[in-house]
Write a protein that binds this DNA or RNA. Structure first.
Lengths: 139, 139
DNA sequence: TTGGAAATGATAATCATTTCCATTTTTGTG
DNA sequence: CACAAAAATGGAAATGATTATCATTTCCAA
């Protein structure tokens, strides 16, 4: 199955030459779950699936994927590091402050805004975060 | 001198009614140093100046200032929280992932987007967060 | 003055992340 | 295949920021 992943990565245009098994495992999980996940969460998912991978290895693999620009490193509000595959089309969230209900929404306007602003100030390699929170109709 | 600070705060349009001494001390330091500082750094500065304030109190004061939207909470690349006085207008940030340099930017597009999305899904009382991060021209 | 609420700060606990290091796995080579 | 060197692995301990606990102190209105 690792070979399968390698083929998928090639399709994505990612060079697998310098990757080891752990790197590929992490990529596989990130691919499957979509969106963001912290190192701890990724570790738990792998463990739950019967993989005996160690937490240290998860951190190491993520670090190397970030170095190779295969994975993006962001921060949750509390400072915890979260990771996602680069180039994923990502979505934003509309969160109810009362019941916690969450809706995934499109952010085309945001993408454009981020790009424009980054250009204006000479920033490159830009990413962004955006969230809307309020009270949903049920609450 | 606390009275002096209170006057300055009033000029800035900040209500001091709910503030205690620690809050004011933190505001004073942030005002003096400009820029960003972490809780640990702010604590050290105060200690160096002979103030016996405890680390716990520094964290508590900063938290309450953030809640009151008097202070902005951002993150350094390593996830450490850094604080600075808010400007008076609602703005967003363009942050350099490498050097931490920050530009305040306009977010008219975001305001509109947030409002539209909230309406579409029947949310009320909405607020939002949005940040752009990348590598600045100097780095 | 006094009683209770709020504030304070030392200490301990928590939690993500790193460091260390001994062990296992992989790889290249004859 | 054998085997040594290199790379990868993972458990345990260390680190460092942040938060929780709790006894003590300060503040303030009656």
């Amino acid at each position: 199955m690792i070979m399968l992943k390698k083929i998928m990565l090639k399709k994505r245009g990612i060079c697998t030459k310098t990757m080891n098994k752990s790197d590929l495992k992490l990529i596989a999980v990130l691919e499957r779950t979509g969106g963001f996940a912290s190192a701890q969460e990724l570790h738990q998912i792998l463990r739950r699936e019967g993989d005996g991978i160690g937490l240290t290895t998860v951190y190491r693999a993520l670090q190397s994927l970030v170095d190779d620009k295969i994975v993006d490193l962001l921060r949750r509000e509390d400072g915890e590091a979260i990771y996602r595959l680069c180039g994923d089309t990502h979505h934003h969230h509309l969160v109810c402050k009362s019941c916690g209900d969450t809706v995934e929404i499109e952010g085309g306007a945001i993408e454009k805004w981020a790009k424009t602003m980054a250009e204006e100030f000479g920033f490159r390699d830009v990413g962004h975060t955006a969230e809307i929170f309020g009270i949903c109709s049920k609450c």
